[in-house]
Simulated assay, not measured.
Amino acid sequence: MIDTAKRVLITGAQGFTGHYMATELRNHGYSVSGIGSQPGNSPGHYQADLADAEALKACLAEVQPDVIIHLAAVAFVGHGDANAFYRVNLIGTRNLLEAISAMGKTPDCVLLASSANVYGNASAGVLGERSPLAPANDYAVSKMAMEAAARLWGERLPILVTRPFNYTGVGQSDHFLLPKIVSHFRRRAAHIELGNLDVYRDFTDVRALVEAYRRLVEQKPTGEVVNVCSGVTHSLRDVITICETITGHRIEVRVNPAFVRANEVKSLCGDASTLRRLIGAWETPPLEETLRWMLEAE
């Protein structure tokens, strides 16, 4: 049985993933608080910037969480300010770990969300947690550095690192490719501009992702690094075809050279066997099901 009195603190609680994470935890009886950089009126919301070490310490000292799920990050790879990746993803995470260490008790589990982007341009095959790290952009380097910094706290804090592959769902920003494609189909646009159509990605449904995170913090596998992924890849061409089939709408795809990234990771496919070893049977819905949910959402 879960101790439903457990208090969970989510960083990035106002973000896409944070919203689903909070719902998942509340649905399973947890007391949920959240840290966000913007003001908020949801119960248990604390406004604090990851750059503000003292604000983080004050928040952690007050909440005294049993579990911390760290989702706050600059995550859009095409983000214009490269330094922001390091300020938030590396220095901000270090500030958080310091605040957790200073709060006066040892939590049950600290989940740090990294990224499968740390694997970089894998030539072929399925990527496991022992695959070599070869980050190909500043976002990925910042996440790899975050993981390295977290290891320095491994003796003091029960840290677990997740490496989610691409995931999506209703409410994700149109900056990301699948929501961009879905939004074009929802408004029945005549054409869409994309970059490389032959980029293959492993997509998870955000609802399955937050279920995996909840079950991981319940198992408390301290010191583990865990891929969260479907083990199936789809190209952007596949995504377009699926959307056309669901909606009955045909769209002209125009390749815009400005959208073709020099350091594009050509194929990312994950191995979720560590996740299943730790939490048992787990599946993400097929991509068609996730895209239908997104296309038909109110």
Rank of each mutant, 00 (worst) to 15 (best):
V217F: 06
E54M: 06
T17C: 14
A61L: 13
V253I: 15
S114V: 00
A51T: 14
R207I: 06
Y167G: 03
N256M: 15
N89D: 06
G231I: 02
R250P: 04
L60S: 00
Q172K: 15
R156L: 12
A72E: 11
M144T: 12
V67N: 01
G44I: 04
Y86D: 07
V206Q: 04
P179L: 08
E129Y: 04
L25P: 04
N95L: 07
H45I: 08
A61H: 13
N27V: 00
N121C: 13
K143L: 07
Q64S: 12
L177E: 06
N121G: 10
I251M: 14
G171C: 08
A61N: 12
L111I: 02
R7C: 09
N256Q: 14
A212E: 05
A136Y: 00
E283A: 14
L90A: 14
V118W: 03
R254G: 03
A122C: 12
A102V: 00
H19P: 00
A61Q: 15
T17F: 05
R207W: 06
P65C: 05
D174E: 15
A190D: 13
T247C: 07
L278Q: 05
R214E: 04
Y213G: 03
P158K: 12
Q14V: 00
N227E: 04
D66T: 11
A140S: 15
V239R: 03
W282Y: 15
H79S: 01
I240T: 13
G12K: 02
F76G: 04
R186P: 01
W153C: 02
S142E: 05
G223M: 09
L152H: 08
G104F: 05
V206M: 04
A84L: 13
P221V: 03
I69W: 14
Y30T: 07
S114I: 01
T233K: 02
V225L: 09
L157W: 11
